[in-house]
Write a protein that binds this DNA or RNA. Structure first.
Lengths: 184, 184
DNA sequence: CAGAAACGGTACCGATCGGTTCAATATTGT
DNA sequence: ACAATATTGAACCGATCGGTACCGTTTCTG
C-alpha cells in the first residue's frame, strides 16, 4: 500500500471505477476503502471529476505500457495483440475497456473524460499502426483502424460472454484480413 | 404522445436512458418529462429497475424488427447488415448500443439487466446466422459470431468517432472474411 | 528538536436519489 | 348519471450524493 494519500486514492479509485463504474462509486466509498480523510481528498483533487481524469490518464499510460511489453515479449508481429488481449480477458477482474466504459457512462462527447478516452484509443491506434508498418504492410494506416475495431469488438464481446474466446475470434478475422488480396 | 401513462413512461424512459444513461436519469426526471404522476409510476412498475427491464425488452423487439426490415429492404445478403448500421450511426441521436451500454453500466453480470442485454445479442446473432446460412455459407455459425464481433466493434467505434464510417470499415473487414479461403 | 506540512475523522451543507402515502381530479364503463 | 378506476400533484421518508470547514494528530524536514 502506497504511503502517500494521493497514491492510495488513485489506486483505490482506479480499482473501484473499473470494477463497478464511475457513477456507481461515490467519494464516500473511495475514502473508506483507501483510508484517506475527506479533507485530504479535496486537498489533492479539486473534485471527483479531477480524480476521474487523473485515474484515466494513469491507466492510459499503464495500459499502453503493458500492451507494448506484452507484444514485444511475443515477438512483435501485429497479430499478437490479440494474444495479449486473450491474456487480459482471462483475468478474473476483467471488466472491459475502461475507456470504452467511460465514454458509455459519460454521455457528453465534449466532456474531458470523453476526450481522454478518445485520446487513449488514438494512441493505441498509432502503436498498432507502427506494428503493421514494421511488418511491411503498405496499407498499415487503414489496417490499424480495422485492427482497433476488431480489438474493441473483442473487448465488448468478452465482457458479454465472460470468456477469453473473443480474442481468438477477432484474431482469426484479422488473419483473414491480412491475407485478403485487397489489403495485401 | 401515447394516451396511457405506462406507454408515456416507456417512451420517455427509453429516450432518456439511451441518450444519457440509466444511472444518470432519475425517476424524478422521467416523471417531469412524461407528465406522469409519481403514484401512477409505481402503480405500473414496482421499481425503477422494473422500468429499465421493460424498456430493454421493448427496445430488443423494436431493434431487431428494424434490422430485419432494413436487411430485407436491402436484398437480404449478409453484408448489408453493415449498411443498415451505417444508416443507424448517421442518426443524430446515435449513442451506441443500448445493450452494450447497459452491460457497461450494470457491472453485475448476474443482474437481470445484464441478462436481457446478453439475450438480445444472442437473438441478433441467431438472425445473422440465418442470413449467412441462407447465403449458402457452410460455416455460418462461426461467421455469425465474427459478424457480431464486427458489428459491436463498429458500434463502439462509431460512438467514439461520431461518424458512420466505422460501419464501412467493419464491412470491408467482413468482405475480406467472406472471401478468405479458410472460411469458404 | 522545533516548526511546517500533510494527514485522518467528524460534523455539516444543500441537493438528489428511489420510494411511500394521501388527497384531489379526470376518465372510464355500465 | 353514477360508481369504479386511473390519473396528477405534493408532502414526506431515510439514504446518499459531491463538497466545505474545522479540529486534533501524525509525519516529514530543516
Amino acid at each position: 500500500m502506497p504511503t502517500h494519500a494521493r497514491d492510495r486514492l488513485l489506486e483505490t479509485a482506479e480499482r473501484l471505477f473499473y470494477t463497478e463504474g464511475i457513477r456507481a462509486v461515490g467519494v464516500e466509498r473511495i475514502l473508506a476503502e483507501s483510508g484517506v480523510g475527506r479533507a485530504s481528498f479535496y486537498r489533492h483533487f479539486a473534485s471527483k471529476e479531477e480524480l476521474v481524469l487523473a485515474v484515466l490518464r494513469e491507466r492510459d499510460e499503464r495500459w499502453r505500457h503493458w500492451l507494448e511489453e506484452s507484444v514485444t515479449a511475443r515477438g512483435g508481429e501485429p497479430l499478437v495483440v490479440f494474444d495479449a488481449l486473450a491474456e487480459r480477458f482471462a483475468r478474473g477482474d476483467f471488466r472491459g475497456c475502461a475507456f470504452i466504459n467511460t465514454m458509455v457512462e459519460t454521455a457528453d462527447p465534449g466532456s474531458a473524460a470523453h476526450r481522454v478516452a478518445a485520446e487513449h484509443k488514438r494512441r493505441v491506434t498509432s502503436y498498432v499502426d507502427g506494428l503493421l508498418a514494421a511488418a511491411g504492410r503498405p496499407d498499415h494506416a487503414a489496417l490499424a483502424e480495422q485492427f482497433i475495431l476488431l480489438m474493441d469488438g473483442a473487448i465488448v464481446t468478452a465482457l458479454r460472454e465472460g470468456t477469453a474466446e473473443p480474442a481468438h475470434r477477432a484474431r482469426s478475422v484479422a488473419v483473414a484480413l491480412l491475407s485478403s488480396p485487397s489489403s495485401g
